[in-house]
């Protein structure tokens, strides 16, 4: 399966070298649209019917934003994707591939094959906020942070319990502090707005981390301004 890449703006999924980028051709059966300037890139791509699949990079938004939706019958050769990453961790090997109700199976298969040919794993899901992983894990992370505040157990005991008891590679508290509680805030706040489900309400510790990150950014801006004034 040959594919081409059209890249415009920053790509969170493929910020650096990757076999997927190396194997792209000038033209191909599948078009991958990378970067955060999707509407512009689609404009440049022009006619989309000729491709087996046109796959656009998504951030937190849904694919429907670019395709439009109607009557639950939407679906074309256009799919969405995001490479999963947890906070400041490097991007994982997982591609969440987003389909719509009437997306043809052939388009899904074509898109899947492109990613798999570059050594990535693909999980197909419908076009919902948080897709699979964020939708599943954020309530668990919020609950862990809340229970830590409530004194269920120490952070170390909670982490070791989930590692030894369930074989998780890392406990929730260690993982969130390592990858950025403020980043957890951003994702779970978006999902809270989308679903109104209390499980997504950012836990107190995530709220504090976010506010602290904002304060630190402000201090940084002041310091830089003062430095500039001193330089003048």
């Amino acid at each position: 399966m040959s594919y081409k890449i059209l890249s415009l703006g920053d790509s969170a999924s493929f910020p650096g070298a990757h076999p997927l980028l190396d194997k792209a051709e000038r033209d191909g059966d599948v078009a991958l649209v990378l970067g955060n300037r999707v509407p512009e890139a689609l404009e440049r791509l022009g006619k989309r019917d000729g491709y087996r699949a046109v796959v656009v990079e998504l951030d937190m938004e849904c694919l429907g934003v670019y395709t439009g939706e109607s009557r639950g019958e939407e679906g074309s050769n256009m799919l969405g994707f995001a490479r999963f990453r947890l906070g400041s961790d490097p991007a994982s090997n997982l591609i969440e591939l987003v389909r719509q109700p009437a997306t043809p199976q052939a388009a899904i298969d074509a898109a899947r094959r492109v990613f798999e040919s570059a050594g990535l794993q693909v999980a197909v899901c419908k076009d919902v906020p948080g897709r699979i992983l964020n939708r599943l894990i954020r309530p668990y992370y919020n609950a862990a942070l809340r229970r830590l505040d409530e004194g269920l157990a120490s952070a170390a005991d909670m982490d070791i319990t989930l590692k030894l008891g369930l074989g998780y590679p890392e406990g929730p508290i260690g993982l969130l502090e390592r990858t950025g509680l403020d980043r957890h805030y951003d994702v779970t706040q978006t999902l809270w707005e989308a679903y109104g489900d209390p499980g997504y309400v950012p836990a107190r510790r995530a709220q504090i981390a976010k506010q602290r990150a904002l304060v630190e950014a402000q201090v940084q801006a002041w310091t830089e301004r003062d430095d500039e004034i001193a330089d003048d």
Binding site: F84, L86, L94, Q121, A123, C125, L133, L136, I137
Partner: peptide, 11 residues
């Protein structure tokens, strides 16, 4: 698909 996402994305 869900199991693959969990295993690949979170190890």
């Amino acid at each position: 698909e869900i199991d693959r996402a969990i295993k690949t994305g979170l190890g």
